[in-house]
Design a protein around this nucleic acid. Structure first.
Length: 489
RNA sequence: GCGGAAGUAGCUCACCCGGUAGAGCGACAGCUUCCCAAGCUGUAGGUAGCGAGUUCGAGUCUCGUCUUCCGCUCCA
């Protein structure tokens, strides 16, 4: 029996062997926690994206999409809280190997001083710390720790490393010439796509004449330095999010929060993923922007892990942007409030966010689809690896296989492909025995294999073989497109 | 970041006490094949992660370095 870890290992190997996912820059020994999607993976990923986009925009009456730039004005990240909340200086004790956030370490010591009745010293210490943190003076902070003889609670020693900063966000140079002041040119790669939606809230609302409640959806890359970058594409430095911010009237947040919680789970189940692999996980400890938050967790080979988050963000983001930009982020609501008989008037909308990691969704689909099957009979040992993707998501929808590569069979197969390839992705293969070709298609997750044989020449019928059951039936060539299209609808 | 393990062909691995690299699968080109992998022939593919040391000689021993995996730690 394979352990969970082995299963993830098997999926990683399979993903590489069949062109789904390659480690980034592999010929240079790779780049930690960065991966490339290959010829099969990019198709699967695109199909997941399309399914999400369609369900969140086209099938909704009041949600539109945008595609905001990855680069954003630096003040965006001050407003969002990313600059202050996720740039914590850290320090390690060399003896206990324990890592601390510097502010936590000093605050702990200050509390101790206070408990010992040395209130003045405690306050001085905190004031000194705040001043140094504000200046990013790490050497000064280190001196502060040393001069106060702050000890590690575990080792009891003062044997500290230098202070290092944990940078959540990647920064880069903006503009083609160096400035005399580097800070002027520093710009971040967005750590989440949500802010691209918030800063465009009024643009979309006004130009699209959107009425609350309405949503803005976006798919795009985001970048984060991870402290522990492992677990394959579950945690990557460059990743892709599919987010939707739903703008609502204050006071209605609870019902909309529940609505989107339910609605998003429905989407997952509509793709044919099993309900027992899903569960909700409500957050007890909330992030700085959240009023309520839950995760939709999926049972990956590494256990139940966050796949999607539903957050009730209140008016935090728009209020912050209003404050930092000095531009009103308000909506005028003409609807009549039954309680007062007057319009609701001007307000900053509340927001419910749904945010799913595209790469995590990819891994969820992949790990759910991956199966090693034992097909042995009394006479013969046999097995296959099959990816049971929902047909809608499969990279290749239909393979067309001439039983032999002569007698005009390849020509008939080519004709079938030509008539179908504008509707869905087809694949042609004439090499090797038919059984081998079926198994290769199983390994890629192709739901339908069509085989052209000699009978085809007589009556224009082919066999269609179903991936999951491995059963086949004979149908007319001109029914093929319909069968496949129906399955991927 | 710490501890442990491992890096040889696309993949899985072999090479016993150091003597200038091999198998299976896979790939490719043919042959065969009328429906579920492992039939036949042939071909390609490796300066053994990288660097240094010991040695007449290093995939094999030593050190360093990089990468990966496992555990711990950290984490929005």
């Amino acid at each position: 029996m394979a352990t969970d870890t082995n299963t993830l290992q098997a999926i990683i190997s399979h993903a590489k062997e069949y062109g789904f996912i390659f480690p980034s820059s592999e010929i240079y020994d790779g780049l930690q926690a960065v991966y490339d999607y290959g010829q099969m993976g990019s198709e699967l990923k695109k199909n997941i994206k399309d399914a999400w986009w369609k369900s969140m925009t086209q099938l909704q009456d009041n949600i539109v999409g945008i595609d905001a730039a990855i680069f954003m004005h630096p003040t965006t990240w001050k407003a969002s809280g990313h600059v202050d909340n996720f740039n914590d200086p850290m320090i390690d004790n060399k003896d206990s190997k324990k890592r601390y956030r510097v502010d936590h370490l000093i605050e702990g010591h200050a509390e101790q001083l206070k408990a010992d009745g040395k209130e003045k010293e405690s306050e001085d210490l905190l004031a000194a710390m705040d001043a140094l943190i504000a200046k990013d003076d790490f050497a000064g902070l280190k001196d502060l720790i040393d001069s106060n003889k702050i000890k590690c609670a575990i080792s009891g020693t003062c044997n500290w490393t230098d202070i290092r900063q944990f940078n959540l966000m990647f920064s880069t140079e903006f503009g083609s010439t160096a400035s005399s002041d580097d800070a002027d040119n520093k710009i971040y790669l967005r750590p989440e796509t949500a802010q691209g939606i918030f800063v465009n809230f009024l643009n979309v609302q006004k130009t699209g004449r959107m009425k609350i409640p309405f949503g803005i959806a976006q798919i795009g890359k985001a970048f984060r330095n991870e402290i522990v970058a492992r677990q394959f594409i579950f945690r990557m430095r460059e990743f892709e999010q599919m987010e939707m911010q739903f703008f609502i009237r204050p006071g209605t947040q609870d019902e909309w929060y529940e609505f989107w919680k339910a609605e998003r789970l429905k989407w997952h189940l509509s793709l044919g993923l099993p309900a027992e692999k899903y569960r909700y996980h409500d957050h007890v400890k909330l992030a700085h922007y959240a009023k309520a938050a839950c995760d939709i967790e999926f049972e990956f080979p590494i256990g139940f892990k966050e796949l999607e988050g539903i957050h009730s963000r209140g008016d935090f983001d728009l209020s912050q942007h209003q404050e930092y930009s000095k531009k009103k982020q308000q909506y005028f609501d003409n609807d009549v409030d039954p309680a007062t008989g007057k319009p609701y008037g001007n307000y900053i909308p509340y927001v419910i966010e749904t945010s799913i990691g595209l790469d995590r969704m990819f891994l969820a689909v992949m790990s759910n689809a991956y199966m090693e099957q034992d097909l042995s009979t009394a006479e013969k040992q046999d097995s296959r690896v099959v990816l049971k993707f929902p047909a809608k998501l499969a990279p290749i929808k239909m393979a067309v296989l001439p039983l032999t590569k002569k007698d005009g069979l390849p020509e008939i197969a080519a004709g079938i492909i030509n008539s179908c390839k504008s509707s869905f992705r087809c694949f042609y293969e004439e090499k090797d025995s038919i059984g081998k070709r079926y198994r290769r298609m199983d390994a890629l997750g192709t739901p339908f294999c069509v085989t052209v044989d000699h009978q085809t020449k007589e009556d224009n019928t082919v066999t269609i073989r179903y991936r999951d059951s491995m059963e086949q039936e004979r149908i007319p060539i001109d029914k093929l497109k319909e069968v496949v299209l129906q399955a991927i609808e």
